[in-house]
Amino acid sequence: MEILIYGIINSVQLVLMALGFTLVYGVSRLPNFAHGALYVLAGYMTWLLVNRVGLNYPLSMAVALVLTGLIGAAMYHFILVRVRGMAISEIIASYAIGLAIIEGLRWGGLKGGTFTLPSFVEGSVSLLGVSVDYQRLIVVVAGLILVALLWLFVSGTKLGLGLKGMAQDEQAAMTLGIDSDRMAVVSMAIGSVLAGVAALVLLPLGSIVVEAGYRVLIMAVAVCVVGGLGSWNGAILAAFIIGFAQILTERYLGAHYQIVVALLAIIITLVMRPSGLFGRQKELEERV
């Protein structure tokens, strides 16, 4: 029972970490390797706003999310747009931005376990005989709400439909007046906000450390590679597979195998089924 409950919680955590990455890649074919850095940055900005500026907690979170979204959009608008279409350069550029943010924060004094965000609600509850703290329940609820909101957004709003069209066939979308660069900016903004949301609900479980940036990036990449790059359903399924695999190894082998599981999942996927569970990279084009 413990495995089931903590498996679900861990899986939803992975969904949260990966959602932004997969959205950006799905819409713009842009691997945002600064994803993990944006995660840490959102958490740190919230901490600063609460502890240095003195805003209250919910307002700080909102401001930090907006700022994270703007930073993501600016990253595309000023830097990534110049290397758009050069796959290797896109990775190098976004990873370099990520490194600059993460190592900049480290240099700026973000180290050790002294930076923490408070839980939304303190305490814990017993669920089917397993003790779970409220923050972990909030993680699951937030994950569900986020996926639902995202679904409503892409199928109910004009901008969302534009993103969906762009994700499926860029050129066909262009001929309908959907602008590729504009959608890329929007997807980067939304993807960054999603990284921020993940940070805000997950960081109260521990402390804000720069290493989380790398860990989140690896988890996001693992989930997206296993699920098939750019596939949202695939990412969610993959998050659950990796999530449960991690909890099982943690139970029977040791906690430090978590990251090994994620990396092994990438390797196994690349060997067995390079396009991932729901990938469309290798799909045969219809011939007429």
Binding site: S155, L161, K164, G165, Q168, D169, Q171, A172, M174, T175, L176, G177, I178, D179, S180, R182, E286, V288
Partner: peptide, 27 residues
Amino acid sequence: KPSHRARQGIVLCPERRRIFVESTVLE
């Protein structure tokens, strides 16, 4: 750019149809 031409009223229906296969007809 093609998206701006579309905005001006020039719309291409591309070869091999290129419809959005993961969306419903209505979508």
